[in-house]
Simulated assay, not measured.
Amino acid sequence: MSECHLCLLGLIALSSLLTGVSGEDDVHVFISSGEDVRLPCNNALHDALPRCKSTTWNYNSHSAAVELIGLGKEMKDTERQKRLSLGSDCSLNIRKISTEDYGLYFCQQWTETGTRLRPDARVYLHVLHISSSQTQISSGLSVTLSCRLYSYPRVSCDDSGRSGGIHLFWVNRAGVKLNISDSRYQRSSSSDRCIISLNTTLLNEDHNREWRCEVTQGDKVKSSVTFTVKSPGEKTSPLSVLDAHNVNIKDCLCQKLRN
């Protein structure tokens, strides 16, 4: 693809970001870190050109557009792009999602001469991730688990349970919200950064105990990630950091975020 064409793509992509708002046709995908994800391209041409030859995927999280797929051709210039592939339906597949992958992805249809064929199809990728204040876990230690939803543009969320928007909750193995009156747990949250933290002192019986963080929209669970306490010396990790069991809610691709 010519340098001029790349410049044109960048200008149009940036213009759509600066002037557009989240529309009713935009797709919002919620995924936990470490999972594989498929981002749908809802404006793909399936009958005019061979196998996604008109499809270009761009990505933005910091007001700078980056081309990932150019006219159906996968780019392998960086380690990040080596995790990308184009599906037969022109969807964008990303392996082993990291917290740096969150942001806005947009699928575009172009001719080789630089004429845009259809309006952009925009996909917002939200990534859920747990981090721990301790690298070595043992009974008697105080540990803080921080669950964060990475989103661009930044969304507001909390654990208040108000209807409508996006919320983060800590739940037990049975999926029941942790009791706020339980003196074992101290919780804190930052709604503007979409973070909810859980602090507790580990007990002997906490070995293999799971604490799960869920992200919901309204009454629907979009994704969840689980922290499991492991004792030192277990073959899964000599430091017994955490065993992250990431859960991908399969039907989240079709959900639309309400303003």
Rank of each mutant, 00 (worst) to 15 (best):
E214A: 02
Q217T: 05
R184L: 10
E210H: 07
S181F: 15
N248R: 09
Y185D: 11
D182W: 02
T226A: 08
L239E: 12
N208K: 11
F227G: 03
V215W: 09
R193I: 04
D251N: 13
N204H: 08
D206E: 11
S223W: 00
K177M: 04
I180D: 10
L202S: 03
P238R: 06
V229S: 10
S237P: 02
S190K: 06
R193K: 09
S240H: 14
D243N: 12
T201I: 04
K230P: 01
H207T: 09
L203A: 10
N248A: 05
R187C: 09
I195C: 00
S189T: 06
G233R: 08
R184F: 03
L203V: 05
K222E: 13
V241P: 00
V176H: 04
L242S: 12
S197K: 13
V225C: 02
S191K: 07
S188H: 07
N204F: 03
Q186Y: 04
K235A: 14
N179T: 04
I249S: 07
D251G: 12
V171R: 07
E205I: 09
K230A: 08
N204M: 04
D192R: 11
T200A: 05
E210L: 10
R209C: 06
N172R: 02
D182S: 09
L198M: 15
S181D: 15
V241N: 07
R173V: 08
S240W: 05
K250E: 14
N246M: 04
I195K: 03
T228E: 14
W211F: 15
D219C: 06
A244T: 11
V171A: 03
T200E: 13
S240L: 10
L178C: 01
D219A: 11
E214P: 00
D206G: 03
R173D: 15
F169D: 07
K220V: 15
N179Y: 01
V176Y: 00
K177H: 05
F227L: 05
N246L: 08
K220E: 12
W211H: 10
K177C: 04
E210K: 12
A244W: 13
T201Y: 01
E210S: 14
E214S: 04
S240Q: 09
K235N: 08
I249L: 07
E205F: 05
Q186A: 07
D251V: 09
R193A: 13
G218N: 12
Q217C: 07
T226V: 15
V247P: 00
L242G: 14
A174E: 15
C213S: 03
S197A: 15
A244F: 12
N246G: 11
V215Y: 08
K235Q: 15
E214L: 05
T216K: 13
P238M: 03
G233P: 05
E205M: 09
S188E: 14
R184M: 08
S197I: 04
S188V: 02
A174T: 09
N199S: 14
T236C: 14
T216D: 02
K177L: 02
F169V: 06
S237R: 07
K222Q: 15
L239C: 11
K220S: 07
E234L: 06
K235W: 14
S181E: 13
